[in-house]
Write a protein that binds this DNA or RNA. Sequence first.
DNA 1: AAGTATGTCAACCGCCGCGTA
DNA 2: ATACGCGGCGGTTGACATACT
Length: 291
Amino acid sequence: MGRAPCCEKMGLKRGPWTPEEDQILINYINTYGHANWRALPKLAGLLRCGKSCRLRWINYLRPDIKRGNFTREEEDTIISLHEMLGNRWSAIAARLSGRTDNEIKNVWHTHLKKRLPQNYQQSHHTKKRSKKQPPKLDADASKSNQDAKLEQQDPVNIHGSNSEDMMMPLSPPHCSSDMSSSLTTSDNNSNVNIINNNHDMSLNVNDYDIDTPENNLALDEDFWSEVLSSDNSGVTSGFPTLDYDQFQPMSPLVTEEGVLIDCSSSTCDDGMDFWCNVYSRAEEFTQLLEL
DNA sequence: AAGTATGTCAACCGCCGCGTA
DNA sequence: ATACGCGGCGGTTGACATACT
């Protein structure tokens, strides 16, 4: 049996909402909430489908919506988040209070995309959403669906990614644009070359238990001390920017969850896994330093 | 002033994953 | 096990506004 249409087309209004309809929807949701969007329009006396009501509320009528133009700071944040998350507008919106995914998507397509170089636009998430998930690699074959869902929402904190993500540089969501640290890999795939506050330094990740299964990617605090404090003044305020364009790790890694990452994959997907973990640990470590 | 091109953004469409019966 | 309902998501559309010729 085929799927039922999301709403009856006959007799239901479409197009722009009138102020009267808005008021009805606001009044209803303020009184009864929106437990069931499908039933809501009938109960509220609106000639709209549930989806339309939901969209109108989420994107326009919600009391916590921030209206008006995006600030430069917000725009920079969106660009930064887009580098990291791709076209996951809802995930980006979740990090920008008061802004909706639709609004962010619009501002991206109308303003922000133009500010970026051509090669960024070509390499970042221009593909349509695929109908099927890309085949899982051996490395994350054991990942549960729940993890996959979480990963989609917040890939920074969960290892794993798809091949699209691999192509983008990773930078933290709350980095300022003048961040002075960067983190890249060197040719031998085991050295991490850190450029922090204009000081170059290299770390051999093998010195820090990164590929020892029993240590579960236990990068110790010495590693992060070096990553984050290469300005010789103790601690830097910025996160490293992770650039793994050329990153193809060769050593096997085991994540904190005990999932084996096959670093020899030529797809580089697991390089992203690696950096997700690296970044996650950097974040944890910096939070510790801030305490 | 009129016609056309381009930009903006609210709204819609169709797909997907999850929960449930 | 599976079919279905639902909410949620990203891509796309189209009406309207504005800029340009």
